[in-house]
Design a protein around this nucleic acid. Structure first.
Length: 110
DNA sequence: CTCATGACTAGCT
DNA sequence: TAGCTAGCCATGA
């Protein structure tokens, strides 16, 4: 039996996102050793109940909040991100221009 | 088995 | 940047 399930590795990858930083669904999947499983990450998050999990740091590849615009979760995520010093406009996280050259730089150091 | 659904992506216009 | 399309994968009917 595997030491860690896919879900556990994904949760670990999410918990590893530093405060004030964000990561994409695909990135989380990749870091968890599950390339191409972005939708699995989304599935895990939708069913998550751990209040300690920094789920608000997970965004879509285009930097937008994945939840339905205007929904309760959407507002909560935007609120938490701003609370960590990030600029959120129209459900979209704006990153410093100097570091937006590539995704790797965009999402911060591994 | 097929079909629909969803906190997804990448490519093209 | 926005809109559309096709591909993707796990679940449940």
């Amino acid at each position: 039996m595997p030491a860690l399930s896919d879900a556990e590795r994904i949760l670990a990858a999410i918990r590893a996102i530093p405060r004030g930083q964000v990561a994409g669904y695909g990135q989380i999947a990749h870091r968890a050793g599950l390339p191409g499983r972005a939708r699995l990450v989304a599935r895990i998050l939708s069913g998550n109940e751990d209040p300690e999990l920094p789920w608000h740091r997970v965004l879509r590849s285009d930097g937008r909040i994945a939840l339905p615009p205007g929904s309760k979760g959407w507002r909560e995520q935007a609120r938490r991100l701003r609370a960590e010093g990030l600029q959120v406009v129209e459900g979209r996280v704006r990153m410093p221009r100097a570091e937006s050259a590539l995704d790797a730089a965009l999402w911060g150091p591994r």
